[in-house]
Design a protein around this nucleic acid. Structure first.
Length: 486
RNA sequence: AGCGGGGUGGAGCAGUGGUAGCUCGCAAGGCUCAUAACCUUGAGGUCCUUGGUUCGAAUCCAAGCCCCGCUACCA
């Protein structure tokens, strides 16, 4: 097993508030990072914000701010999401406006250009006069802007730089065939294979600086600004020192990426082609998650069904949000989330399940077992001393290596149920009056069970895991319930 | 239209040839250590439809119906 593991999320575009879908991506990446760390790997966890482009400029203007002031404020919100979700504390937070990133993006451009992969060509923009916005083919309905169907779309010819994507058609297909686990799940790999197999067209990677000044200047051509795609993707290498600290870069590359299904093509085709262009090895793995829908529909402000991760964390705590996202959201498919479902899962499994079990076991233990130091000497129950690691729980590990978070947690909750049933069957609370020794052994066994659960929970609910370990160590009942019923 | 995924008790899902299972919800009983928590049992299913293969199909094959994703500049 390699010693170093580099993981990254995508960088969310900051033209909207952080939303629960991105929280899912962060939490998935975090669980993988923590599990790997427990296996002894060193972790570089990357996330951050994507801050350039025309949309940002427009959103900033609408808010009466300069682009820089606007992105500063938004980046702060995204940064605050990390502690709110209990994400890896040493996570690197990169902003595409960071000077180091700007330099790296320009260097990346130069190398791609040196490889002969960048050239100038006329690009015809589709422009809706009604919106005063550039439109893409997929935004149009019957060749018209859906908001202004009576107005003709204007074609504006502009000279842009293009990236020779077409050159990488066969290399990409070879990559997919030689590395069938590059993209997970398999259905997404097939999708991107089909996309590349249909034939690739070069894509534009710059815009006129006069119209779109908010971005990274193209090296040696001040009349052009890099298109955000090109700029933002480079963050995955700039974050670990590419172009400035080769030693560091070599230590961490290649990357394990987490991304949403809307990012499949950019991450697994375009970005991989860009890497080939500058002669870097491809990503190690790209894990594609589904979308979180709300009430059966895509979340939108106008529908009023947006689920705010901050509000959830505020009401239920970061551990509860992590729990829900990892266990009750399908890792690879779209999942519908509502406040009711969240509450139901919280009460059933955290309050009644895990939290209640900790309370009842630790009450028995603190009342009837000698204090922990004696326990650790093994006088009463040698089992309690046993220190286990995540690797002792094989099924759980198997699920985790396949990124099947909910199955891994199902396994944990199955054990919680077994503990509850065991208490019911053996009745240590009555037995203590008639056969105290036997009762104490049962209780000690339960305490060991809690300790084991804490080990299993560590990648998913790190704080809860630490709390349980501490209670076991101190032989104390929790002063407040771990998860109060809501 | 093409390619891909899917249709399983009220809800969400698992199950890929051999008596239909899990979680939540619902009902009854039990327990009292615990956060009115916990345990046991029960009710509830034409496993989309039709035809086929087979001793036997939710599971394989064929046709059909329905839902979803992808078919490039959506950060």
């Amino acid at each position: 097993m390699p010693k170093a593991l580099y993981l990254t999320t995508t960088l969310p575009y900051v033209n909207a508030e952080p939303h629960i879908g991105f929280a899912l991506e962060l939490v998935q990446a975090d669980a993988v990072a923590r599990a790997a760390h427990l296996r002894g790997q060193e972790i570089f966890f990357n996330t951050g914000t994507d801050e350039h482009g025309l949309k940002i400029k427009r959103t900033a203007e609408a808010a009466g701010l300069t682009p820089q002031a606007y992105v500063d404020q938004m980046a702060e919100k995204f940064r605050r999401l990390l502690p709110a979700l209990g994400i890896w504390p040493e996570a690197n937070f990169i902003r595409t406006t960071n000077p180091a990133h700007v330099t790296a993006a320009q260097e990346f451009w130069r190398r791609a250009a040196a490889a002969g992969d960048i050239y100038k060509k006329d690009y015809s923009l589709k422009y809706c006069v009604g919106c005063e916005l550039e439109k893409t083919e997929s935004e149009l309905v019957d060749g018209h802007c859906p908001l202004h169907p009576k107005q003709e779309i204007e074609l504006i010819a502009e000279e842009n730089y293009f990236f020779r994507f077409s050159k990488y058609e066969s290399p990409l297909l070879e990559l997919y065939n030689s590395r069938p686990d590059l993209v997970l799940p398999e259905s997404r790999l097939n999708e991107v294979k089909a996309f590349v197999g249909r034939g690739l067209q070069d894509f534009s990677i710059s815009r006129s600086a006069a119209k779109q000044p908010w971005g990274i200047p193209v090296p040696d051509d001040p009349t052009q600004t890099m298109y955000v795609w090109f700029d933002a993707l480079v963050n995955y290498v700039s974050a670990i020192g590419w172009g400035s600290d080769e030693e560091k870069f070599k230590n961490w590359w290649p990357v394990v990426q987490f991304a949403g299904k809307d990012n499949l093509r950019q991450q697994s085709a375009m970005w991989q082609a860009m890497l080939m262009s500058v002669c870097l090895p491809p990503s190690k793995q790209i894990i594609i998650h589904g979308f979180v829908t709300s009430g059966g529909q895509k979340m939108s402000k106008s529908l009023g069904n947006v689920i705010d991760p901050f509000a959830l964390a505020n009401d239920y705590g970061s551990e509860a949000v992590r729990y829900f996202l990892l266990r009750h959201v399908q890792p690879f498919e779209d999942t519908d989330v509502t406040p009711e479902k969240f509450k139901e899962a919280y009460n059933a499994n955290l309050a009644n399940g895990l939290g209640n079990l900790v309370s009842r076991v630790m009450k028995l233990a603190s009342d009837h077992l000698p204090a922990s130091p004696e326990l650790q000497r093994g006088e009463l129950a040698p089992a309690v001393v046993e220190e286990r690691t995540l690797e002792d729980f094989k099924e759980l590990n198997d699920h985790l290596t396949k990124f099947e978070f909910s199955r891994a947690m199902d396994e944990i909750w199955r054990h919680i149920g077994l503990h509850d049933a065991y208490i019911q069957e053996t009745k240590p609370f009555s037995l203590i009056k008639t056969e105290p020794d036997k009762a104490r052994q049962i209780i000690a066994k339960l305490v060991q069970g809690l300790a084991d659960l804490a080990v299993c929970l560590e990648p998913f609910l790190p704080q809860t895991s630490a709390t349980i370990k501490n209670l076991v160590k101190e032989n104390k009942t929790p002063p407040q319930p771990l998860f109060p019923r809501k």
